[in-house]
């Protein structure tokens, strides 16, 4: 690891200034659980760090609003996961947080930084000699034709099949969350669905954020579908493991009829993946084991599989189906 300049602004205003002053190769560091990890692997080598972890004004959150839930980007994952209102009214959001990483990491990682968690692709993290278009554009992709068990089957390209590893962004995608950002050029709002890019020919560009653009806030529109929601995470270990397949599902039902279905997928795609075809197929019909299964299958019609990750098509479909039935159960009891 090369040394770096370091600035720790204490207000958002100062952070924007620090970002304006910093070199173009500066990186924003918050909890550090992704960036510092990758610096230790010599995958990231920033010349400067702007530490935003002490922006106290961004650590608050409010889940009691009548129009939207508001999460300061520097709030810790563990604090939001422990929120009783969220656990009751939006179990998918709470579950996506406490099923992620470990208690220690959740005490460090911020909900803003977590959106930008980078892939766990071992060829990406392993450095040389593995070619990796994400790490070194144009060098190739070792995962294609390699050990791709954990890799993506949706949203892949001939340049990259790395899976987006996060959980929280997947749950947020199901609820059409919005992100507020600031940069030296001003503020803007980004729908979560537009934050992450598919790899295409440029897998090194993972989001639409500019290097000096700071996520300050995450907003989730209030919906009654929140209560009938779940984040269903299937992984090898019972805890402390990344998803092989996950589904964030939220429902609004009227009797047996589905009025609203929200499905987002993790562990199977190159970015948080909204399964809109599956959602549409469920609308207006009764949710049964059969229709849930059909919706699950529909979500993977475009899947492209490699040598070892074919099972994700079946596992993903079953995960969606099971998540739908869990959410339906919560609709009944709420």
């Amino acid at each position: 690891m090369r040394s770096f300049a370091y600035a720790r602004p204490l207000t958002v205003m100062a952070a924007v200034q620090a970002l304006a002053d910093a070199s173009p190769h500066a990186r924003i560091i918050a909890g550090g659980t992704t960036l510092y990890d990758l610096m230790k692997l010599n995958i990231e080598a920033p010349q400067a760090l702007v530490d935003v972890s002490r922006l106290g004004e961004l650590t608050t959150f409010d889940t009691s609003g009548t129009r939207e839930l508001v999460f300061g980007a520097m709030a810790r994952m563990s604090d939001i996961a422990a929120d009783r209102t969220l656990q009751t009214d939006y179990p998918a959001l709470a579950e996506s947080l406490w099923l992620a990483a470990s208690p220690q990491v959740r005490n460090m990682a911020t909900v803003g930084g977590n959106l930008l968690q980078r892939t766990r692709c071992a060829y990406f993290r392993g450095g040389a000699p593995y070619p990796c278009n994400k790490r070194q554009p144009g060098s190739g992709c070792a995962a294609i034709g390699g050990l791709d068990r954990s890799h993506a089957i949706l949203g892949t390209s001939t340049s990259c099949v790395a899976v987006y590893p996060g959980d929280w962004a997947v749950a947020l995608a199901a609820f059409d969350a919005q992100l507020d950002t600031v940069s030296p050029r001003g503020e803007r709002t980004i729908p979560i669905d537009e934050l992450h890019r598919e790899p295409g020919e440029t897998p090194h560009l993972e989001t639409i954020l500019k290097p000096d653009e700071l996520i300050v806030r995450i907003r989730v529109p209030v919906t009654v579908a929140g209560r009938a929601s779940t984040y269903h995470k299937i992984r090898d270990r019972a805890s402390y493991a990344f998803a092989l397949a996950s589904a964030a599902v939220a429902l609004r039902v009227d009797g047996d009829t589905v009025r609203e279905a929200r499905i987002a997928l993790g562990g199977v795609a190159t970015r948080p993946w909204r399964a809109r075809d599956a959602e549409r197929a469920l609308m207006g019909g009764a949710l049964t084991e059969g229709s849930a299964r059909a919706a699950g299958e529909l979500a993977f019609t475009a899947a492209r599989t490699g040598q070892y990750n074919r099972f994700k098509v079946e596992l993903g479909a079953r995960t969606i189906a099971e998540a739908l039935m869990i959410a339906k159960g919560r609709a009944k009891t709420s």
């Binding site: 090369r2 040394s3 770096f4 300049a5 370091y6 600035a7 720790r8 602004p9 204490l10 207000t11 205003m13 100062a14 200034q17 620090a18 002490r54 106290g56 004004e57 650590t59 608050t60 959150f61 409010d62 889940t63 009691s64 300061g72 709030a75 810790r76 604090d79 929120d83 009783r84 209102t85 969220l86």
Partner: peptide, 24 residues
């Protein structure tokens, strides 16, 4: 109402602990 208990007291706009380059 759920407010994060760990909110810090925010000081006026300033940065602390700045180094421009390692060594400097």
């Amino acid at each position: 109402m759920n407010r994060n208990e760990l909110q810090e007291v925010v000081t006026p706009a300033q940065s602390i602990l700045v180094s421009t380059r390692p060594g400097e």
